[in-house]
Design a protein around this nucleic acid. Structure first.
Length: 313
DNA sequence: TACTGGCCTAGGTA
DNA sequence: ATACCTAGGCCAG
């Protein structure tokens, strides 16, 4: 199936920018599993081609209904931000499934993207429902009930380390009904955040990721080490000198410091601060990180090798 | 309320 | 190869 693209959209950047972990580039297509269904999608000049799902799903998942031009006008407050926007123009946030998003970002703390991919892949292979799509095997991300019935040892075997305890506990709470996505979706940002902070393994950063990617709270602005660098080096003048100096020297980020950076960004960029975050984050990683788009696409081969290894174990 | 270590581990790098 | 080093933090004290 095919969908004419009448709005700005860059599929590759959208799937490479670190908001999702389990999409796999293969044979010129992106393969993924969403909502228990496997699908493939690719970007061809002026249209999207896809299989496994319908047009409405694609539009919804990739947020093609967001007015990206309007958002860019809203968050493009300064030259630096406008550069990031133009550099990766067409990057869109994705409407992830809340549970998968919550579980993913609990696992993601203090880990590199490559390691996160491996952890989540192993969880899916071991606990996820097996699917067949066009003759190929895929695995859905495991639901909370399944993980709640696993053991600490099993989760650690997937490489989770100290996160295993958090994921197991949170899975149990979610399976017991403590996590109602519909309710959280209706709540305002601050209220939903308070609920999320009640799950073990969920601090401010993880909560903001889940609010942004899982619940579409576009005012959420996750601050990780990369965003901290961006905010200090390009927006340092908005903070007291003492704060800037202290943050630059410290490796971590205390809760109160998180609130300072997060609070500034949300008031500065406004109601779509989350979009600003994703563009700045990706820009920073491509500029200063060891990661760049070319490399990420080059992950393909390695990803396949690791998938094979994971299946052996 | 705010700060400080400790924590599991795998990928990446020199 | 083989050691490091760091990675999209969180939590208990």
């Amino acid at each position: 199936m095919s969908l004419p693209l009448t709005v700005p959209f860059n599929l590759d950047v959208t799937l490479c920018c670190g908001q999702v972990f389990l999409w796999e580039p293969r044979d010129d297509w992106w393969f993924g599993v969403v909502g228990g269904k496997a699908l493939r999608v690719r970007h061809c000049v002026d249209r999207l081609e896809f299989a496994g799902v319908g047009e409405e799903f694609v539009k919804h998942y990739f947020r093609l209904d967001d007015d990206l031009d309007g958002i860019a006008r809203e968050v493009g407050k300064d030259e630096y931000m406008r550069t990031a926007l133009s550099e990766f123009w067409g990057l869109r946030l994705v409407r992830q499934e809340p549970w998968e998003c919550l579980a993913s970002f609990i696992c993601a703390t203090f880990k590199s993207v490559a390691a996160i991919q491996q952890m989540l892949l192993k969880l899916s292979l071991r606990f996820g429902k097996q699917l067949t799509f066009e003759g190929q095997e895929f695995h859905a991300f495991p639901n909370a009930a399944r993980l709640a019935n696993s053991s600490l040892e099993e989760l650690k075997a997937c490489g989770l380390g100290y996160r295993a305890k958090y994921l197991l506990e949170t899975s149990k709470m979610v399976a017991a009904g403590d996590f109602n996505p519909e309710t959280l979706r209706e709540m305002p940002y601050a209220e939903a955040k308070r609920i999320l902070l009640g799950f073990p393994g969920v601090g401010r950063k993880v909560a903001d990721c889940v609010l942004l990617f899982g619940f579409g709270k576009l005012e959420a602005f996750p601050v990780d080490v990369w965003m901290k660098r961006v905010l200090l080096s390009h927006y340092g003048s908005y903070f007291e000198a003492g704060v800037t100096k202290k943050l630059a020297e410290a490796s971590g980020l205390s809760n109160s410091d998180y609130e300072k950076l997060n609070g500034f960004a949300r008031s500065y960029f406004g109601c779509c601060a989350g979009y600003a975050q994703e563009y700045l984050y990706h820009y920073e990683r491509c500029l200063r990180g060891t990661t760049n788009l070319k490399k990420q696409r080059g992950l393909n081969h390695k990803f396949k090798v690791n998938r094979h290894e994971a299946e052996q174990s």
